[in-house]
Design a protein around this nucleic acid. Structure first.
Length: 114
DNA sequence: GGCGTGACTATGG
DNA sequence: ACCATAGCCACGC
């Protein structure tokens, strides 16, 4: 019996999108979920990233809808902020400064692999 | 099947 | 801007 969704396809879409987040920019869990076709799956995006165990993708460029580094505890101490700052992103109190300009919306610019 | 949990989000005060 | 609340939904116990 197939589940009502394709977990592998979802995970692949999430990775695909994250792979395309430009240097010095960031996006949110909800935006990724929406672009992947599951608008209410922001929590699953976080779960998927955490379970990946891989750091070949720019997971530090994924934050919550307010630009806060909600996943920082899964990186080393201060690592997530450090990675962002190394790309020129300013972080104050765990929140990305000038978030409106840093935010990259995948729904507008995503190119899915076929 | 119930219940708590979580790298979430939108809304209202 | 900050805090509380409700909605969300797979997952593990």
């Amino acid at each position: 019996m197939l589940s009502k969704y394709d977990k592998d396809a979802f995970r692949q879409a999430v990775y695909d999108i994250i792979h395309q987040i430009p240097y010095g920019r960031a996006t949110s869990y909800g935006a990724i979920a929406k672009a992947a076709g599951y608008p209410n799956w922001s929590r699953m995006v976080g779960r998927t990233i955490k379970e990946s165990g891989s750091y070949t993708l720019p997971f530090h460029r994924v934050v919550n809808s307010q630009g806060m580094l909600s996943g920082k505890n899964c990186f080393g101490h201060g690592k997530m902020q450090q990675l962002l700052e190394s790309e020129g992103v300013v972080v104050v109190n765990d929140k990305i400064k000038n978030w409106r300009n840093i935010f990259w919306n995948p729904i507008n610019e995503i190119i899915f692999k076929v």
